[in-house]
Amino acid sequence: MIYEDLLKFPPYSLPQKEKDSKLKNTLAGAFEHHFNNCPPYRKLCQKRHITPPLNDFEYPDLPYLPVEIFKKMRLSSVDDTAIVRSLQSSATTSQTPSTIVIDNITRMRQVNTLVWLLGNFLGKKRRPYVILDVDPAAVKAGQNTISARAAAIRGFLVAASSASYCMLPDGTGDNLKIDFDTLTAKLSKMQAENQEIVLFGFTYVLYVYVAQQLRQKGITFSLPKASVLHIGGWKKLQNEAVDKATFNSTISDVFGIPQNQVLDIYGFTEQLGLVYIDCSDGLKRVPLTAEIIIRDPQTLAPVPDGDTGLVELITPLPHSYPGIAVLLDDMGRIVTREQAEDQRYGTAFEILGRAREAEIRGCGDILSGKMTL
């Protein structure tokens, strides 16, 4: 079974046993491809005594790559002539970004997977997107944070029928200000027409630069058919003692959107295209194309459901680089494996923040021989 076959099913439609059969079959093929075509990855697998073919394996058996390795090495499983672009993470928690090489197979999988997942929550019909950030055309040299956000936002526009940007740089660096005239005119028109729109932005920007300022001015809207998608994590808001409940309540009050239509999205560059979106119970579930493991920060052994540890996410999506099992520096826990009230299947989890100090093993297994591509 190839990856594209998985996308023929709705993302959360299969019970675990049926999902495992299809996903493990696809992962076994992906593992063999990367083992045969990426020498550093093959070295890691051999040191861990795991070689193809994979038969009757469990998800924790797959050799994982610590996310840090993508900051230290350029890993590729295809010929250089097949690479169409290189992607870099925003490096928000370090000075060194991850670098991911992309071929056309991976690029198409990323786009098709994102559309597949967003369509499950928003419907297949494209909607107008109101982007609560800066138009990339207005970004000047040196505004690095805004540039990184603009690059991330562009990927989500594959599901948009149109895109309107409603913020401006304030001219002093990476800070923003609302274009009140544009935003209020746009949302007032959409409110009058009762449109099904998507408000999209980064979690911190949406709350601090938009919702709070609109509330302070007493400006509210009634957009019951709208949805809010926000990305980028909670670190900055947690530093300001803003939790998810407060965020959702504020966004709902300002924009007149039901709280269950305020959707937090989790994803990362090293498995771009895969996103994890809030279900009806406020938990994120892994779709048919992925699985999650939580590992003890000290021993790296899998922990029981409910325990907190380092998040590992597994997917056969990447073809051009061996990112099929990535151990992150995020902490999380598996909450339940039961079907959600909205009938979605999949392991349900929550992200609890970044690991403060975690020595993630694995880099040395690749780097010790000074092997490079």
Rank of each mutant, 00 (worst) to 15 (best):
I2F: 09
K8W: 04
P15L: 06
Q16G: 08
K17C: 04
K19A: 09
K24Q: 14
T26V: 15
E32V: 09
F35D: 09
C38A: 07
Y41T: 10
K43T: 14
R48C: 07
T51E: 07
Y64K: 14
Y64I: 00
P66V: 08
V67E: 11
K71W: 08
M73D: 04
S76I: 11
S76G: 11
S76K: 14
A82T: 06
A82P: 13
S86Q: 14
A91L: 01
I100G: 11
I100S: 12
D103N: 15
I105G: 12
R107V: 02
R109M: 07
N112P: 02
L114I: 03
W116T: 00
G119K: 08
N120T: 08
N120F: 10
F121G: 03
F121K: 02
K124Q: 07
K125N: 10
R127K: 15
V134F: 12
D135L: 07
P136N: 05
A141Y: 11
A141K: 13
Q143K: 06
Q143A: 07
A148K: 10
A148I: 00
A152C: 12
V158L: 04
V158A: 09
A159C: 13
A163R: 01
P169T: 00
G173F: 07
D174C: 01
L176T: 00
K177H: 05
T184P: 01
T184N: 02
L187E: 00
M190Y: 08
E193D: 05
N194A: 03
I197E: 00
V198P: 05
F200I: 03
F202Y: 07
T203Q: 00
Y204V: 07
Y204T: 09
Y209F: 08
V210T: 05
Q212D: 07
Q216R: 13
I219G: 11
H230C: 03
I231N: 13
K235S: 01
E240F: 00
D243K: 04
D243Q: 03
K244F: 06
F247T: 10
T250D: 02
T250E: 07
S252G: 11
D253P: 02
D253F: 06
V254W: 03
F255H: 12
I257C: 07
I257Y: 04
P258G: 01
Q259P: 09
Q259Y: 04
L263T: 02
L263F: 06
L272I: 03
I277L: 08
L283A: 08
K284C: 06
R285A: 13
V286E: 13
T289F: 01
T289V: 11
A290V: 02
R295E: 09
L300P: 06
L300G: 00
P302R: 05
V303C: 12
D305I: 02
G309K: 05
V311F: 09
E312W: 06
L313F: 08
L313A: 02
I314W: 01
P316T: 01
L317R: 02
S320A: 15
Y321V: 01
I324M: 09
A325D: 11
D329Y: 03
M331K: 10
T336Y: 04
A340V: 12
E341P: 13
Y345H: 15
E350P: 13
E350K: 14
E350S: 15
G353V: 05
R354N: 06
A355G: 12
E357Q: 11
I360H: 15
G362T: 14
S368K: 15
G369P: 13
G369A: 15
L373N: 14
